[in-house]
Design a protein around this nucleic acid. Structure first.
Lengths: 223, 223
DNA sequence: TAGATTGTTAATCGATTAACAATC
DNA sequence: TAGATTGTTAATCGATTAACAATC
């Protein structure tokens, strides 16, 4: 049921998009790059199914939340689909991102080439340790945490990568929120309390390993 | 409906456990550590709800897949619950893990203290670059990729962290599979094809950022 | 045209939530 | 005992899958 606006007309894309769908869009983009690299100009939902873990029906259903993308009997033009998915994910223009916490993990992220490839630009890094500040790492200027407000006023980022210790995570987020940050990639082992309108994605290596650990125990029994 | 074994008796825990439940077990464990650290000896499902993003009903339901853990009217004894969840996740004893790919990310993972804290021990690292091999990084011996079979025969790991380039991911997995690896924490931007009985968890920073990017675009509209 | 493949609707599946009898 | 809180069942919700008319 499409929502009806105040003017009585039905608006075009107001269906709530399931979170798993948004996650898969990124997978599709990755697949499209490799398909293009292998010389194809067109793909079908069946291609997607055979190259990814996503079914053809799921792929079509996911795209349907955003409009029509293909031609019956033909499939999808790769370059067009790339462009439209990029736009949906707001990846068609470079996104400024800040990094908070320049420990081992934070430093490794700065040298990760994938970020730039996907149009994310780390425009500033912050650390509480004064010894780390005032220089540049991988071309990214490092500031004291106390400069967060000033620098964010200038750079106006919406996304922050949080790579601080668990105990510092909440207070660091609270500070970042004041500067206008509304999305957090959280590497800290902590559950953040955030106001409505803020999106958090947690990355926990130990959680992932725990799930693997559970499965190697359990799955051996059946085989 | 509990499964019935060949002897006709019903076996105790044969209900399939939903994947989200397994993921949350790790969250509960993290919460229990901090609850214990704050001096508590007992918690209730209501405590869990107020400290995590998980509802009280969800918490009780999750635990119910594995038996009974609490006392009505009282709650759960923290130390006991920790022990039992640790055991379910096979985290009560140290798990050997190997790391394949010693680039920036791989090296950062080796210096990440969280792994040891959760009883994962990286027992060997492997890289295709001979210049990186034959030494020790963070106390972990680094071998040539060609030594994978030999070393794994000795160390007998089941879990591998895959931190290699996307194009090398599949062939590296295939090799690791031969050595007995049955669980993969995959950092490579690639969809792995794996035999039945193998568990893969994908970690993709750019995918996470893409999801955040989508939300900062979309969620601003409602507020 | 015949074959292929889309976008969408309806059916299925599975996970989350609510409610409550049991019990400490 | 009265109050609190569990474990479980039933109801709800939402996502995935299957099927197919539309169409290139």
């Amino acid at each position: 049921m499409p929502e009806t606006g105040v003017d009585g007309r039905t608006s075009p894309t107001p269906l709530r998009v399931p979170e798993p769908t948004v996650e898969r869009l990124s997978t599709y983009l990755q697949f499209l790059y490799s398909a293009a690299a292998s010389g194809l100009t067109t793909i079908s939902s069946a291609h997607v199914e055979s190259a990814t873990a996503v079914s053809a029906a799921q792929f079509r259903k996911d795209l349907s939340y955003f409009g029509e993308f293909g031609k019956p009997g033909v499939g999808y033009v790769i370059s067009e689909l790339q462009g439209r998915i990029s736009r949906i994910l707001q990846l068609h223009e470079t996104q400024p991102v800040i990094l908070i916490g320049l420990g081992n993990l934070g430093a490794a992220l700065l040298s990760y080439p994938g970020l730039t490839e996907q149009r994310f630009e780390v425009v500033a890094a912050f650390d509480i340790d004064p010894k780390k500040c005032g220089r540049t790492v991988q071309g990214v200027p490092v500031y004291a945490l106390s400069d967060l407000l000033t620098e964010c006023a200038r750079l106006n980022p919406r996304i922050a990568i949080l790579a601080v210790p668990g105990l510092a995570a909440q207070q660091t987020f609270d500070l970042a929120y004041q500067t206008g940050i509304r999305a957090i990639l959280n590497f800290a082992p902590a559950v953040l309390k955030v106001p409505a309108g803020v999106t958090v994605r947690n990355v926990s290596f130990t959680q992932e390993l725990a799930v693997l650990s559970y499965h190697i125990k359990t799955d051996q029994l059946d085989s």
